[in-house]
Each structure stands twice: as structure tokens, then as C-alpha cells.
């Protein structure tokens, strides 16, 4: 598959070597508070987290605990109130072109059809849309949306829109992939298919992935590491290393190890 071969940017190394990789995203004592009227609410409280290059890390936590806020800080979309954020060891103040984003909502442009929406990043980066059209079509195929390239967003279901948004994030071969509950709007079957596709693309690309979810099973299935956040204020409660072998296959979901990891996480979250 041509997309896949093009995506082959980094090298996927076996589990053992992952620890020795350089740090890609480095959260150092990150705090964030928002002012609402006279009082300030602290959303994130001294979050420390190092994400090695090429690793798939999930943030898990209940609604409102600050997951989206942490992701927006990592991407340079907002700045932390205190603490430092570094990518590749350099402080970051705004998004860079090596990042791909999937937001919690699809955020498509309603006056562009699917293909044109997919090519938006290409246009903005000043590249030739013509050149990337075959790749855009291949990504649509991968997302099961091949028949919709001329449809407008109003004609798509919520889940289809979200898959367009995922394809849009992948079109530039990002070396960092930020995903904010990208599969929230999908049914269980499509969601599992998307897990498979996402892992395939990710493992071929060597990208570092920061993935947000509040679905424990999804976090365990996809990730090398799951970071559980506490609520109000958001802190790193516990980090779980997921030592299931890769490539992951659906049968892993019935493994004892998988189930016990899920149980531990569930226990950690409700504690």
C-alpha cells in the first residue's frame, strides 16, 4: 500500500529498545488555571510526563479532568500557567507542521467537500493539492470513505465526519499525532476497525502519538503507556506500562493480561 510505504518515516523497534529512545514530548511541572470571574480554578496541577519518540501514549481520565487542556498545551495551542513544555528538547510556543491533530469534534469546513477538506493542510502548507490527491484518496479508502469524496460534511454521519478528520490529520505524515477522543462518535464495530487501521498507520510511520480517551479498553489496546489523570485538579495519578506484544490483534482483548490491566486501571480511576 503506497500510503503505508510513504508513511515509513521512522523505524519501529521492538519493545525492549523503546525505553532508550530520546524524549519527544516533555511536560515539566505543567500547571494551568483558568480565571472565571474573581476566582481561578486550577485545571492541571504540576503534571510531569515524558513521552519517548515513537511511543503511543494514552491519557485516561473522567470528563472535565483536563485531558483536552493538557493536549492543547502539548500542541502549543495554549500556554501553561506554570511549568515548561519541550518538544525534541526545545521549548514550544505554537503548533508546528510536524503535528497532526484530531479534535474532539470533527471541525470540517462545511463549504468544502470531503476531498477538499482532506487537502486543506496541503493548501495551507503551500504544497500542490494535485500531487497529494492520490494519497488523499488512499486515506479515504483506508477509512472506509472512498465513496464519499464528493460529499459535503452535512451529508455525512458524525462518525464519518470524524473519520474524515482523522484522514486529514494523517495526510501530512505527522511525526506527532494528537488525538482527542477521535473514536467517541463511532459504534463498537467501526471503532475496532479504526483501532486496527490506526495502529497499522502509526507503527509504519514511527510517529509519537498522544491519544485521549475515557474508554479503558481502548487505551489498553492501543497504547504503550496509559497515563491516568485525577480530577480537579488534574494530576498524573498513575502510569501503566502496557506490556502486551505488538502488533496488537483483536484477540488480545480476551487475554488475561489485557483484562487484568483493565481491572487495575478501573480500580485506579474509581479510587
Amino acid at each position: 500500500m503506497a500510503v503505508v510505504s510513504e508513511l515509513r518515516g521512522g523505524v519501529f523497534s521492538p519493545d525492549g529498545q523503546r525505553q532508550s529512545r530520546p524524549t519527544k514530548i516533555d511536560f515539566q511541572e505543567i500547571s494551568k488555571s483558568f480565571r472565571s470571574g474573581l476566582n481561578r480554578t486550577t485545571v492541571l496541577d504540576r503534571v510531569n510526563l515524558k513521552i519517548p519518540e515513537g511511543e503511543f501514549v494514552s491519557l485516561l481520565g473522567e470528563s472535565g479532568c483536563g485531558k483536552t487542556t493538557l493536549l492543547r498545551i502539548a500542541a502549543g495551542l495554549i500556554s501553561p500557567s506554570r511549568g515548561k513544555l519541550a518538544i525534541d528538547g526545545k521549548p514550544i510556543s505554537k503548533p508546528t507542521r510536524e503535528m497532526g491533530f484530531v479534535f474532539q469534534q470533527p471541525v470540517l469546513l462545511e463549504w468544502r467537500n470531503v476531498l477538499e477538506n482532506l487537502l486543506l493542510p496541503i493548501e495551507i502548507f503551500g504544497l500542490s493539492a494535485e500531487e497529494y490527491r492520490p494519497k488523499a484518496r488512499e486515506l479515504l479508502q483506508l477509512m472506509g470513505l472512498a465513496h464519499t469524496e464528493n460529499h459535503y460534511p452535512v451529508q455525512l454521519s458524525g462518525g464519518m465526519q470524524q473519520r474524515v478528520a482523522i484522514a486529514r490529520a494523517l495526510i501530512m505524515n505527522p511525526s506527532i499525532l494528537f488525538m482527542d477522543e477521535p473514536f467517541g462518535a463511532l459504534d463498537a464495530i467501526t471503532r475496532e476497525q479504526m483501532h486496527t487501521e490506526l495502529l497499522r498507520i502509526w507503527s509504519m510511520s514511527g510517529a509519537t502519538a498522544l491519544f485521549i480517551t475515557h474508554d479503558i479498553g481502548e487505551a489498553v489496546y492501543l497504547s504503550d503507556r496509559v497515563v491516568v489523570l485525577s480530577s480537579r485538579p488534574g494530576r498524573v495519578k498513575k502510569t501503566f506500562d502496557i506490556d502486551l506484544p505488538r502488533p496488537r490483534v483483536p484477540e488480545h482483548r480476551f487475554d488475561d493480561r489485557f483484562v487484568s490491566l483493565c481491572k487495575d486501571m478501573k480500580h485506579c480511576m474509581t479510587q
Binding site: 500542541a75 495551542l77 505554537k94 503548533p95 508546528t96 507542521r97 503535528m99 491533530f101 479534535f103 469534534q105 471541525v107 469546513l109 463549504w111 486543506l120 493542510p121 493548501e123 495551507i124 502548507f125
Partner: peptide, 23 residues
């Protein structure tokens, strides 16, 4: 949300105007 998307893509002010605000 759309403005944030354009910021995430490091769009220039002019690109944001022509490709987002005007349409």
C-alpha cells in the same frame, strides 16, 4: 473550533481570512 484548526495548521492571517473567515 475552525479558528483553532487553522491555528493548529500554522495558517497565516491571510490564509485564515481567505480560506476561513470569508467563506
Amino acid at each position: 473550533h475552525q479558528l483553532e484548526l487553522f491555528r493548529a495548521l500554522s495558517a497565516t492571517g491571510w490564509q485564515t481570512f481567505i480560506k476561513l473567515r470569508v467563506p
